[in-house]
Design a protein around this nucleic acid. Structure first.
Lengths: 143, 143
DNA sequence: ACCAATGATTGGTGACAACCTACAATATTT
DNA sequence: AAATATTGTAGGTTGTCACCAATCATTGGT
């Protein structure tokens, strides 16, 4: 009775949308326990992986509106996870860097996500999980 | 510069969430051109695949609040795609059936989604697409 | 020196999903 | 018959998300 219509499950796009939503939901719930949102992690990851950004760079990289970047960074700096300093070369720009505390927080979020992901992918064995990740990556990096 | 942080792309949960979102977005955009929403398709599919439902059954099957089912059905019946008749055995219940026009509309939406899905999965060859669908299905039907 | 463009910021907006309460009609239980 | 539960319905709330316009400081070009 709780079954999903086959007409829908026959569509890969539907499965992606549906599973993506539960994944998103679980991550959001997990992060929410510590009053975090999805883009807290995204921003910290961007800063940790690619080094300092201007806010505009951050926005374009993550596909977020510049005005929303401001609000997000307000919280990150308030938590002591990122710091804003004026770029001396171009004083309009803000140079955003991640702090060691920010890196630690990011590591925690990643671990949480991995635990959760283990549950989500429970029906798959390690080889299948790797295969799934590989295929998703290909789709994601649409060349 | 538009690259996504590897810390994130290393997480299958992130890829699922992200790709799912774009899939959802594209389907929503496509349907939106005809003033349709996601659950128009879900409901029609449920009715077409499993036969008549009471509204509560529809709601629990699709994970939608009963009050929202009402609003959704208002639109479906207004479009002539579904019909409400009182269940003679239990006059509290409403028996919801899909009309032939509803089935035709559903078929159209499915075709649209398939076209769109072709674009989304462009980086994969047919064999890979089948494999992806298979893996997603396993995850979806978590036993 | 002036003007146009850029970056950050503020303060909104509209759309939407999820949820919740109250209620009327009907069924079921006591 | 009376109390209780279920079903559909109407209406509203909340949070989030994406987006937009206006503003201010700063820069680069002319």
């Amino acid at each position: 009775m709780t079954d999903t219509p086959p007409t829908l499950t026959a569509l890969t796009a539907y499965l992606l949308s549906r599973i993506g939503k539960t994944a998103r939901g679980q991550v959001a719930a997990r992060l929410g326990e510590r009053d975090l949102r999805f883009w807290h992690m995204s921003m910290l990851a961007a800063l940790a992986d690619f080094g300092p950004h201007s806010q505009r760079e951050l926005g374009t990289r993550l596909g977020i509106d510049p005005s929303d970047v401001v609000k997000a960074l307000d919280e990150l700096t308030a938590a002591g996870w990122a710091e804003r300093t004026r770029d001396p070369a171009d004083r309009r720009k803000v140079r955003v860097v991640v702090t060691p505390e920010g890196r630690a927080a990011l590591a925690g979020m990643v671990r949480d996500t991995e635990v959760l992901q283990d549950g989500l992918l429970a029906p798959l064995n390690p080889r299948e999980r790797a295969r799934l990740h590989d295929l998703l990556l290909k789709v994601f990096e649409r060349p």
